[in-house]
């Protein structure tokens, strides 16, 4: 009698081994990789990635995608710093940033969930809309902030650990809980498994799409705010291409495009893998251009591998299930 969680663990076992191997390799090969200072900073990058990726995981579990995540990060960082520069209180500035993410998320959810547009193209369009709005809002400039609180959000420490570590720990726990234990989480898995079955079971699918995309938007905005905090400035290119890393993280973590299976645990390991790779490559002395190409290649290979493994798995399942 095997438990679900157990079989889930079996699926990510290989990935876990890969992560460990990569970690050991980088520790020996890359000077300065294995050290508290570096690893603590890697952890920060990891958690920013993970916050955005947890929203994306929910979307991909639904069998959809959110291309706008990176642009939403940019937009949120701009909105927050811009509001600060207009003299708004930090609380309103942060709220404004999150609201921007929520609005783009709502638009995504509406286009995909209610109007039934192709999810790739719809979110690709909102991606450029968000990016465009960010560019227009900041007029193409970097907006610096003098808020200590924003800086603290990005770089401050509590008990020797970055603020984001505590924050993300709580957030991710909640996300994990919501996605596996609550009615809403169950609905996401059901719709991803088969939208028709979910609908026949009386689930209002469009609502779930709306809420999930809004959550993904807010989490992406949160990631953007942390990025802004790190530099204490807003930048319309902060999230350029970030959605690509995020999608790759989710796929590497074993949540396939067709949705319905996988989850946040895998995404976490996928994120660790990607962040170690990124950091290790720069520690190994690759120029940013090389990092850019190599990571892109690694991601593409991961996606191809994921697709082909899933093809085989699907064929295997088809043999057993008449669907």
């Amino acid at each position: 009698m095997k438990r679900n969680d157990y079989s889930r663990y079996r699926e990510i076992k290989g990935l876990l081994a890969g992560v460990l191997l990569l970690f050991v390799f980088m520790s020996f090969a890359a000077e300065g990789f294995f050290g508290w200072y570096n690893l603590h900073n890697v952890l920060k990058d990891l958690l920013i990635l993970m916050i955005v990726a947890s929203g994306m995981t929910l979307v991909i579990l639904l069998g959809k995608i959110d291309m706008s995540a990176g642009s939403v990060m940019s937009l949120a960082s701009i909105v927050t710093t811009l509001l600060l520069s207009y003299g708004f209180h930090i609380a309103f500035a942060l709220l404004g940033g999150l609201l921007a993410g929520a609005i783009i998320g709502l638009l995504n959810g509406y286009l995909v969930g209610v109007l039934n547009l192709n999810h790739f193209v719809a979110t690709f369009a909102t991606m450029s809309i968000a990016k465009g709005l960010a560019l227009v809002a900041c007029n193409g400039d970097i907006i610096s902030s003098d808020s200590d609180i924003l800086l603290f959000i990005g770089t401050g420490k509590i008990f020797g650990l970055f603020f984001i570590v505590w924050f993300a720990a709580i957030l991710l726990l909640i996300m994990f809980f919501v996605s596996t234990k609550t009615k809403f989480g169950y609905k996401i898995y059901s719709i991803g498994g088969s939208e028709q079955v979910a609908r026949l079971s009386g689930i209002k699918t469009s609502n779930v799409y709306l809420v999930t995309y809004v959550i993904a938007g807010i989490l992406a905005a949160l990631g953007g705010i942390f990025m802004a905090g790190k530099a204490n400035s807003g930048n319309a290119t902060i999230g350029d291409g970030y959605e690509f890393s995020v999608i790759a993280t989710v796929l590497i973590g074993g949540t396939p495009f067709e949705g319905g299976k996988g989850g946040l645990l895998g995404t976490l390991i996928g994120a660790i893998f990607l962040v170690i790779l990124k950091n290790g490559l720069s520690m190994l002395g690759f120029t940013p251009a090389w990092q850019y190409a190599l990571i892109g290649l690694a991601i593409l290979i991961a996606i191809v591998a994921d697709v082909s493994i899933n093809e085989r798995r699907k064929a295997e399942e088809k043999r057993r299930v008449k669907l």
């Binding site: 498994g193 028709q196 079955v197 026949l200 299976k261 299930v321 669907l323």
Partner: peptide, 9 residues
């Protein structure tokens, strides 16, 4: 046709 989700218990 069955209306079951293969990846759920």
């Amino acid at each position: 046709e069955f209306n079951l989700l293969p990846h759920r218990s």
